[in-house]
Design a protein around this nucleic acid. Structure first.
Length: 349
DNA sequence: CCAGACGTTGTT
DNA sequence: GTCTGG
DNA sequence: CCAGACGTTGTT
DNA sequence: GTCTGG
């Protein structure tokens, strides 16, 4: 299953990390839907009902836009169907944070969004999964294997006229020409819907994460996993509802053995906890769990960058939860490069 | 026809 | 046990 | 997903 | 809104 994620990049970094290709194969950097970059708050611990970045066809918001151009929006986790009649969306009593790929067409809440092409890609650093045993629940952080080298980029910035989309700043345009060298975001297949309160008001956009059987590599942790889209072409096909019909899009939802993982502290269990400790590889000195290959890779990220001089501790001692503070800065990357404290500061005051 | 559901997981 | 909130 | 509540009255 | 069950 998939009931917790991490998404720590700043909004502008999410944009850079979400480069996609259109039908012609041109690289594009998606812009944020107006106002949405402020609704998203980076967090090491995102639970259902929180807001996360999703990529979707620009056409959903702009009828004049090409269907193969994309935009970033901030949506709430847990699909609220358009027909929901209560005045408060929180009264939705059904569990719609996940949606089984096998029964998608049989479910009233999901069939309509699917047939309307309301497919989106949920973005995250990775997700958490709890392995249950008789005595305990051991959480793991699961993500794309990370590499440091990529090919050169061929940039064409999106230029679709719409009141929804602001023009990028000149300095930003310049930066956008460089390729994203940071964390490779996990691309998860989702469906979304828009819900408007019966009394009227702003439309609330919500999404569900589609699940499939766990791949062989993840079976030891859990029997279900989110449907992961592997690479630009799969992302394009999932989002291009003009070219790829629902039936064909469903074929993309397969277990794929392409993820890596490591155990993390049960610190992540409480969704109020929000710091790098949530995804830090757990030190398991016991014979019980050996450091996995992926854990070692992450550790090597940690060590490959020299710790350098420590900043004055006093400057960061009262660091607040990332979700509440900075909008800028690649939090995950900062942690990986050691500019954040690897251990969470004492919770108390 | 109308009434009522509309969802997943894990556990037993 | 089950539901709500995070 | 997990954690934590699960309730009312009257009084300050 | 749409589908299922009665």
């Amino acid at each position: 299953m998939c009931g917790r994620t991490a998404c720590t990049l700043a909004p502008h970094e999410v944009s850079k990390a979400s480069r996609y290709r259109n039908r012609a194969g041109q690289y594009r950097r998606p812009r944020w839907r107006e106002g949405d970059s402020d609704k998203y708050r980076p967090s090491y611990n995102k639970s259902p009902q929180s807001f996360s970045p999703v990529l979707l066809s620009l056409r959903h918001f702009n009828k004049d836009a090409p269907v193969d151009e994309c935009v970033l929006a901030t949506m709430r986790w847990g699909l609220v169907p358009a027909w929901f009649r209560e005045s408060n969306p929180n009264k939705m009593q059904y569990s719609t944070s996940n949606c089984r790929s096998e029964s998608l067409l049989e479910k009233k809440s999901y069939k309509d969004p699917l047939l309307k092409g309301q497919r989106c890609v949920v973005l995250a650093d990775g997700f958490y999964e709890w392995k249950r045993s008789e005595k305990e629940k051991q959480p793991f952080f699961i993500y794309f294997p990370q590499s440091k080298t990529e090919g050169a980029a061929d940039w064409h910035s999106v230029d679709v006229k719409s009141p929804f989309f602001e023009k990028p700043l000149p300095e930003q345009l310049e930066k956008d020409k460089s390729e994203w060298k940071g964390w490779r975001l996990l691309t998860i297949a989702g469906l979304f819907d828009g819900w408007t309160p019966p009394a009227g008001g702003e439309t609330l956009y919500t999404y569900t994460i589609i699940t499939v059987s766990a791949s062989s590599g993840l079976q030891s942790i859990h029997d279900r996993m989110p449907a992961v889209l592997d690479g630009e072409e799969e992302v394009r096909q999932w989002l291009d509802y003009g070219e790829v019909r629902s039936q064909d899009a469903l074929k993309l939802l397969q277990p794929k053995d392409i993820l890596t993982f490591h155990p993390v502290s049960s610190f992540v269990n409480n969704s109020r906890n929000n710091s790098a400790e949530c995804l830090q590889p757990l030190e398991l000195g016991s014979k019980k769990v050996q450091p996995s290959a992926s854990s070692k890779v992450m550790m090597s990220w940690l060590q490959s960058s020299s710790p350098g001089k420590e900043k004055k501790p006093g400057a960061t001692t009262k660091r607040r939860a990332p979700e509440e503070n900075e909008k800028g800065g690649n939090l995950l990357h900062k942690w990986l490069t050691g500019s954040c404290q690897t251990k969470k500061p004492a919770m108390s005051n």
